[in-house]
Design a protein around this nucleic acid. Structure first.
Lengths: 142, 142
DNA sequence: TATACTGTAATTATAGTAGTTACAGTATAA
DNA sequence: TTATACTGTAACTACTATAATTACAGTATA
């Protein structure tokens, strides 16, 4: 799996915390990755309306929504992100055996159900929940 | 994500269908992979008691359980398989910013909740369910 | 018109994943 | 007792998915 979803959530949290326009370069430094990768992900979030982008001098990304009303499920959907599907598929459609020819499709369906289960779980988590965790970390138990 | 889980389910379905001892080589042909990879995965399933293995001539793997009583969650747990955790983590623990230093741990927790959601969904799917899908495929809609 | 951005593509580098080969250990049967 | 056919496991190679780098056209601002 790619780190795209982590990057997107991290970016949104940083933006909503800063509450001003932030460039891909500043974001990339905070996230520990490169600006081009940040821009690719932020562009998708922009298309989904989760943030706005301004080109030109003093431009960058701006989060204007209500963190309490944006769920992680919305973020995942904005990215069209698949959490569980592996690249490798077992068997082969042209094989004679029903198991060998059928398993890949059946597993694809299983993974799509798992993705749905993940999204359903993420419907219950908002950016505000994550912000709380970031800024009120539980006391360390030492 | 690796294809380990797909491979394990495919193998178990094939074994339960054949109802006799099958070598890693035969399994590998059906799954379309190599015997060593099959043996690595089957060894884990054996340790979890999901099948038995016999070494020596005429050896191989044998499924003896009741497909209706084995869930895909048991299979995933036998492999200690993580469905969602990405390798890449954002930010860095030593950074000054609370967002940059805290996000990775928070996302790890999110992914662990997603894995739990996946397992919970897989509790409801048995090998017998998969066998039914393999051998009573829904009519194609052409 | 210079500057500082985004959006995007092309390329390179890295790392995660699968494939290959090899061999010690073990069960079976001639 | 020896040949055969397996598993279990490790070491290595090959492949492919992912991230990093570089570059540049387009655009907003001053």
């Amino acid at each position: 799996m790619t780190g795209e979803f982590s990057l997107a959530v991290h970016g949104l949290i940083y933006l909503s915390h800063m509450d001003k326009t932030i460039s891909s370069e500043t974001l990339a430094k905070n996230i520990c990755t490169n600006p081009a990768r940040v821009r690719k992900v932020m562009a998708k979030l922009k298309k989904a309306g989760l943030l706005s982008a301004r080109e030109g001098a003093d431009g960058g990304y701006l989060f204007e929504g209500d963190p309490a009303r944006i769920t992680l499920a919305q973020v995942a959907r904005a990215l069209q992100f698949s959490f569980t599907a592996p690249a490798w598929r077992s068997g082969g459609v042209d094989m004679d055996c029903l198991v060998a020819s059928g398993m890949a499709d059946i597993m694809d369906q299983v993974y799509s159900e798992l993705d749905a289960a993940c999204l359903s779980r993420l419907e219950t988590v908002t950016l505000a929940d994550i912000l709380r965790q970031v800024f009120s970390p539980p006391p360390s138990n030492q």
